[in-house]
Computed example of a mutant assay.
Amino acid sequence: MSTAIVRFAMGREDSPSERHDPPTPARENPEVTPLGDPWVAFGRLVAGVLVYGAVGWALDRWLDTDYLVVVGILIGAALGLFATWQAVKAPPPEDER
């Protein structure tokens, strides 16, 4: 009896465990990540900027300059964008491989 009251109060006829969602590639294989995930693209861009910015900063300290950190940040941003583009571009058709 209490299950019926909870279902009525929740406004659903089925519980989450009883629902059958259509399969998606991520559910069939959990190691597959969606290509359009904006957080993956953001992570690649930020990682490139942080890593190459840190390399530029270290080179600035070592060589006693003040411009290599900017160069590192720009190179890191460019490589982050390139890595994102490579990950989301469509694969070539089977006949061109």
Score class of each variant (00 low, 15 high):
79 L>C: 06
4 A>S: 15
23 P>A: 11
18 E>F: 03
91 P>H: 02
96 E>P: 00
42 F>L: 15
76 G>A: 08
72 G>P: 04
77 A>I: 04
13 E>P: 00
23 P>T: 10
68 L>V: 06
14 D>L: 15
18 E>M: 14
52 Y>K: 05
22 P>F: 08
36 G>E: 02
94 E>I: 11
39 W>M: 10
27 R>L: 14
83 A>Q: 10
12 R>T: 15
59 L>Y: 03
83 A>P: 06
34 P>I: 04
2 S>M: 13
31 E>S: 11
64 D>S: 13
83 A>L: 13
75 I>Y: 05
36 G>I: 00
72 G>I: 03
74 L>P: 00
32 V>P: 03
36 G>P: 03
45 L>Y: 00
75 I>N: 04
43 G>I: 08
45 L>W: 00
72 G>K: 02
6 V>I: 15
87 A>H: 04
8 F>K: 11
37 D>Y: 03
47 A>C: 10
62 W>F: 13
81 L>H: 05
14 D>S: 14
80 G>C: 11
63 L>D: 07
78 A>F: 04
62 W>Y: 12
86 Q>F: 01
4 A>D: 14
62 W>H: 10
61 R>E: 12
68 L>Q: 04
43 G>Y: 01
10 M>R: 11
47 A>R: 07
21 D>C: 06
57 W>E: 07
97 R>T: 12
79 L>E: 05
17 S>V: 14
57 W>P: 03
76 G>Y: 01
9 A>K: 10
23 P>C: 11
64 D>P: 05
7 R>K: 15
57 W>Y: 13
70 V>E: 05
87 A>V: 03
16 P>C: 06
44 R>Q: 05
34 P>V: 10
73 I>Q: 03
40 V>G: 01
46 V>W: 02
22 P>V: 13
31 E>L: 13
11 G>A: 09
3 T>C: 07
20 H>I: 15
46 V>T: 10
58 A>L: 15
93 P>W: 04
40 V>Y: 00
88 V>K: 02
28 E>I: 15
3 T>I: 08
82 F>E: 06
27 R>F: 05
34 P>E: 11
94 E>W: 04
42 F>I: 15
35 L>R: 06
51 V>E: 02
24 T>H: 05
16 P>A: 13
